[in-house]
């Protein structure tokens, strides 16, 4: 099933926002990827089916791909296949290519941010942020300096929060730590699995604006799984809508890039039209489920 790129939606841009690097392979490419669990048993389940898409490696900017879909349709499976995390990885059939090469294992070039933050409880904020550098063998002084810099960038107070443990932080602060810890490694791809799903709306808007700002700085390609349509339209350059399980890409929208704060942009008419349109598609999918 080929995904239809819809170009007549409100608030769309019909062209990619920058030319692809000439001669470079796409940064992420799925070729008819299918993932089944429990193959050969009575509990065989197909998580995603024939997923095909290409995300080009753009010159000097990364694309922001938001993935929407009814619950249980395999959104996370797509992310975990790119990351190389078991048990979703490896795919049952098809090819997952990263820079034109098959994905073989997780690596720091593909950072991941989880809904439950997964901050290491035994490490202070600064040691959490410096974890990746520590694994690389960066000397202590250097990595502490870099970590402090990133603590500032995610708008935590280095003086007050740097030596706190995760249990002393709120959910939003913990997610800031998790984002800093991922971005400090300058990944080329950032995979975010409903990162703001557990946050209250106000914190969520702040985090969205923060993410947009940081993403511009690191110029990475972002895959962002969410349930929140407004969030996906605000953050995404492109929005994928997955079908009911087994998931496959049904629609692909190009939407306007976030150039104003979330609270402002989300109030505008074209923005809301797009949101309602996508929401209608999703509602139809949820209804058709059972």
């Amino acid at each position: 099933m080929a995904a239809a790129v819809e170009t007549n939606a409100c608030s769309i841009t019909d062209a990619p926002k920058a030319p692809a690097k000439p001669g470079a392979p796409p940064i992420v490419e799925f070729k008819a990827v299918t993932k089944k669990f429990g193959v050969g048993t009575s509990r065989e389940v197909t998580a995603i089916k024939d997923v095909t898409f290409t995300v080009e490696d753009l010159e000097n900017v990364g694309e922001f791909v938001a993935i929407l879909g009814p619950s249980g349709c395999g959104k996370s499976t797509i992310l975990r296949l790119i990351a190389g995390h078991a048990p979703q990885f490896p795919a049952t059939s098809g090819e997952v290519l990263y820079h034109g090469q098959p994905v073989i294992a997780p690596g720091p070039d593909r950072g991941m941010v989880f809904q439950d933050y997964a901050c290491f409880d035994n490490r202070t904020v600064i040691d959490n942020v410096a974890f990746g550098l520590e694994c690389r063998g960066v000397p202590k002084r250097e990595r502490t300096e870099a970590a402090l810099e990133w603590v500032r960038k995610v708008r935590l107070d280095p003086a007050r929060d740097a030596y706190k443990y995760p249990h002393q932080l709120s959910g939003g602060m913990r997610q800031r730590v998790a984002i800093a810890r991922t971005l400090i490694l300058k990944p080329q791809v950032i995979l975010m699995d409903e990162p703001f799903g557990a946050l209250d709306p106000a914190t969520r808007h702040n985090m969205q604006d923060l993410l947009v700002e940081l993403w511009r700085e690191v110029q990475a390609t972002v895959f962002f799984v969410t349930h929140d349509v407004a969030e996906s339209v605000y953050l995404g350059d492109r929005v994928y809508i997955l079908s009911n399980a087994p998931g496959t890409i049904l629609h692909q929208f190009h939407v306007l890039a976030p150039d104003r704060p979330a609270r402002q942009m989300m109030r505008e008419k074209p923005f809301q039209d797009t949101v309602f349109r996508i929401r209608d598609i999703l509602d139809a999918l949820e209804e058709g489920k059972d």
């Binding site: 995390h85 690596g107 720091p108 998790a178």
Partner: peptide, 15 residues
């Protein structure tokens, strides 16, 4: 120890 910690460690380059 939940798996997500391990996944996080891998994507942060633990080797």
């Amino acid at each position: 120890v939940p798996n997500s910690y391990l996944d996080a460690a891998y994507t942060l380059g633990a080797k």
